[in-house]
């Protein structure tokens, strides 16, 4: 019907599949997000380290050949491509992912809560779980583009240069990159959404997210020093992640806590975030 016919009429056309509706939210969020030049610039900048790392892989492969050309036989490459190399790459990208989350994440839920928009979402055939999934997928997709996708490309470049034998022997590294990235993405996304649902104020939620990761580091060190214990590190999410990453990448640098206790602690953090989201994301707020 043309817009000039200003009379009410119903809708009897086709409908979309119910399972796909959570994907509507990221589309609208991205449209809004990438209007900002700062966000766009930062997102593009997040692809620079992967380019540098790919160049390092290329160098590591080409330097011995170059040395041979220059007459230096038997020269080794100063760059070693091993699990530590990929772990360093993941560390780099995880920092960028964290900055991106601190900027984007807190506004995802808090703005809806502050503007009382939840009844509008939930009065439709759209559940709370779909709402959380939709909001989370904003971060899941963006952070995937920053972390494990370039990580696997880097791995692919190395495998292409080294050959099939290296690929088969180091396939576990691809898994470590993939799994390590996803753990980080899930923790970041859940914490960003939960904190933003809890404080309902974007700036405060952003500050809280920073505090959880940075202040907790100092706090846990203080616990360890004062009580002369080592389990204080269990309250440092960043340290938990590092412990798990070291295990995944088979890097034995020693840790104050065991990998299993880090896994349990991260599971507890995820559960707490989900519980917070369950409590806070309701169409109407019930004050007992």
């Amino acid at each position: 019907m043309a817009v000039y016919k200003r009379s009410y009429h119903g809708y009897s056309g086709p409908m979309t599949a119910a399972w796909s509706r959570f994907t509507i939210i990221p589309r609208y969020v991205y449209r809004d997000l990438f209007h900002s030049k700062i966000v766009t610039a930062f997102f593009v900048a997040a692809f620079l380290p992967p380019v540098v790392f790919i160049f390092l892989v290329y160098l590591a492969h080409s330097l011995p050949h170059l040395a041979q050309l220059l007459g230096q036989r038997g020269a080794d490459s100063p760059i070693t491509i091993n699990s530590t190399f990929f772990l360093v790459f993941l560390n780099f990208q995880s920092v960028l992912a964290f900055i991106f989350t601190a900027f984007v994440g807190p506004g995802l839920v808090s703005r809806d809560l502050a503007n009382r928009a939840l009844p509008l979402y939930l009065c439709r055939p759209f559940s709370r779980a779909e709402y959380v999934l939709g909001k989370m997928s904003v971060l899941l997709i963006l952070l995937s583009l920053i972390t494990w996708i370039p990580g696997l490309i880097l791995f692919g470049v190395q495998a292409t240069l080294e050959g099939g034998q290296w690929l088969i022997q180091n396939l576990w590294l691809a898994w470590a990159l993939f799994a390590g990235s996803w753990i980080w993405i899930l923790i970041l996304s859940l914490m960003a959404l939960a904190l933003s649902a809890w404080v309902k104020w974007r700036i405060a939620a952003g500050a809280l997210l920073l505090a959880v990761f940075f202040v907790s580091a100092g706090f846990t060190d203080a616990i360890n020093k004062i009580l002369d214990v080592r389990w204080g590190k269990l309250f440092n999410p960043m340290y938990l992640l590092l412990t798990i990453w070291r295990e995944l990448f088979h890097v034995n640098e020693g840790s104050d806590i065991s990998a299993s206790s880090a896994w349990i602690m991260l599971a507890l953090i995820c559960t707490a975030c989900l519980w917070l989201l369950y409590r806070k994301l309701r169409a109407i707020e019930v004050v007992p």
């Binding site: 409908m15 979309t16 119910a18 979402y121």
Partner: peptide, 8 residues
């Protein structure tokens, strides 16, 4: 809102 209600 219309999309969330199921319209293409």
């Amino acid at each position: 809102m219309a999309e969330l209600s199921g319209l293409p």
